[in-house]
């Protein structure tokens, strides 16, 4: 018990530079020392009848341990998974990424024509101005619930 309190206190102190001291202590003690942050999420609007969409974001890992994004959940009936877009010899293909490594002290950018979260089985189109609820499941950091703003199709990111 003493060790957990000491660890939480240490973490709270080390994070106090970046965040207000009263916020994180409870959050970090939940699941290990890793604590990734999801920043600037966005998704493109989709057309009626289009059942697949994509979400992008930056995932930052300020801690000293590597973390992994292992799965993503979204409201049924849709499903979500991390995919990599790759182009070779002019041909573009997508490959599922079962576990996305977020390096210690680093960040991973999910962006157009690169790694992205693919959402399949959308029951209704994503409308510009609305918001898509996603839960990212990390091995070390646990769950991150995010609201992804839906931007217009011609967009290339949040301003």
């Amino acid at each position: 018990m003493k060790r957990i309190i000491l660890l939480a206190a240490l973490l709270a102190v080390s994070c106090s530079k970046e965040q207000p001291p009263e916020k994180p202590a409870k959050e970090e003690a939940k699941k290990g020392p890793v604590n990734v942050r999801v920043m600037n999420p966005w998704a493109r609007e989709t057309a009626p009848g289009q059942t697949m969409g994509a979400a992008y974001m930056t995932i930052r890992n300020p801690s000293w341990d590597t973390d992994w994004l292992q799965s993503v959940t979204v409201d049924a009936p849709a499903t979500a998974a991390v995919h990599d877009t790759a182009t070779a010899n002019g041909v573009t293909s997508m490959k599922a990424v079962p576990s996305l490594e977020i390096p210690a002290g680093g960040a991973v950018q999910l962006k157009p024509q690169g790694t992205h979260i693919m959402i399949s089985g959308l029951a209704a189109p994503l409308k510009e101005g609305s918001s898509l609820a996603l839960t990212l499941h990390f091995k070390g950091s646990g769950d991150r619930k995010i609201d992804v703003p839906v931007l217009d199709a011609a967009s290339d990111g949040p301003k």
Binding site: R44, A47, G49, Q50, P112, Q113, M118, I119, A154
Partner: peptide, 17 residues
Amino acid sequence: FTHCPDVCPTTLARLVK
């Protein structure tokens, strides 16, 4: 193809821009 989540809308958006 219209069900393309990433490359197609990105490319068309870029051409428009």
